[in-house]
Write a protein that binds this DNA or RNA. Structure first.
Lengths: 143, 143
DNA sequence: TCCATTTTGATAATGATTATCATTATCATT
DNA sequence: AATGATAATGATAATCATTATCAAAATGGA
């Protein structure tokens, strides 16, 4: 936690950007929540500890966290970007329940290998990828 | 082609919806283009053969094509929904070049199997999925 | 402390998509 | 072919997430 903050501050210094209370609050909220958060949700949480915080600052800071590699952007096709921890968190994919909106993280080594193979075959240099499996989760099915 | 039109008309009749010139034009444009089109692009093409056509009708018709299963919605994370043929076209995934925006279709049987396995493990009933691999294509790399 | 530079927050702007609603078109039935 | 109930249309307003604008405030090196 302390380490992640240091990573961010180092990034700011290197880019001649400034450390501010708002950026601290937003990073804090982001790090403390082990969930996929939208900008709006982060705004709500950050506002609790710093009521003067504005929407634009949340968006700006999330883009910085994305740039420095602390956050990953996730797109579930509902028109909102979600953010999840990236730094020191292994890549994974998502099962997304279309009934309740909850997500389950999954990982498979073989999957990654096949993706690399497909890219190679097409002489394509992959940078990142996103696999979303939509369906109905256990709980919703039994409901 | 004629068959797809019949499928759509059958769907409309079953839902007590009406066959209209606009719907014909939009379906025609959609079927004749072997590319991933946005609503805006389809609007442009449909307007050529039927200048009176409106934006809203394009969106409404695309949603119908999605419902009847003739179109698949593709989301490449750039804020626009794209449409591609689904009926009698095998499912596939996409390599998306972040330089030129072009896409390459890929398919791997093993990939589908692994996805089914991951779903099973989490007692999740998958309905559909989307895998996007982002990166740089052959042409852009050599440029 | 000073000051150049960056940040901030309020709000306007943007861009894709959807909703509204008065008018028009469709189609099964006469 | 005319009727009428219902659905469709198109122009445009509304929505919603995100980005841009800009004057005022905060930061941090000198």
């Amino acid at each position: 936690m302390e380490y992640y903050r240091a990573v961010f501050n180092e990034f700011l210094r290197a880019r001649k950007l400034k450390c501010t209370g708002q950026r601290d609050s937003i990073l804090d909220v982001f790090l403390k929540t082990e969930r996929h958060l939208t900008a709006d949700e982060i705004y709500g949480l950050a506002k609790k500890r710093n009521p003067k915080i504005g929407y634009a600052t949340v968006y700006r800071t999330l883009n910085l966290l994305y740039e420095v590699g602390l956050a990953r952007e996730v797109n579930w096709g509902d028109g909102k970007i979600r953010y999840e921890h990236k730094y020191r968190h292994r890549h994974h994919d998502h099962l997304i329940c279309t009934k309740c909106g909850k997500s389950i993280e999954v990982f498979d080594k073989q999957l990654e290998k096949i993706q690399a193979k497909l890219s190679r075959e097409k002489e394509f240099i992959p940078t990142h990828h996103q696999l979303n499996i939509y369906g109905v989760c256990d709980k919703c099915r039994k409901r």
